[in-house]
């Protein structure tokens, strides 16, 4: 299972401990986490379910390429970090 870790800045607003999630893409892994924590979805994704403009996701050391559909593939050993982008906001 992939490991999903959220920025500490997000933990100030909502409970989001590191999670283990199944899935073949970033979207599938995040959706698995959101199923147990529905409110968290709105802090990471926007109304169209794209990654929020000032959020960033790093998969195994690489920035997410598909910020709209989150289709980047992941492996069972992947580490997914959900971070604040440095673009501001």
């Amino acid at each position: 299972m992939a490991r999903v870790v959220f920025t500490a800045n997000l933990k100030r607003h909502i409970d989001c401990p590191p999670a283990e999630a199944d899935g073949g893409t970033v979207r599938e892994a995040l959706e698995a986490v959101f199923r147990g924590n529905e409110r968290l979805r709105g802090y990471v994704l926007d109304d169209q379910s794209a990654l929020r403009r000032h959020m960033a996701v790093v998969v195994d050391g690489r920035p997410l390429r598909d910020r709209v559909h989150l289709s980047d593939p992941i492996a069972p050993t992947s580490a997914i970090y959900v971070l604040q982008a440095l673009s501001g906001g």
Binding site: N9, L10, H13, R39, G42, Y43, V44, D46, D47, Q48, R52, H54, M55, Q84, A85, G88, G89
Partner: peptide, 28 residues
């Protein structure tokens, strides 16, 4: 308005603040 994390609404009833739904736009 959290900037990075979006816009959230909270309601206080009987002394306790609780996050409630924020308006959401429909799929484009």
């Amino acid at each position: 308005n959290h900037g990075h994390f979006g816009v959230k609404l909270h309601r206080r009833s009987r002394g306790e603040w609780r996050e409630i739904a924020a308006p959401a736009y429909p799929p484009k």
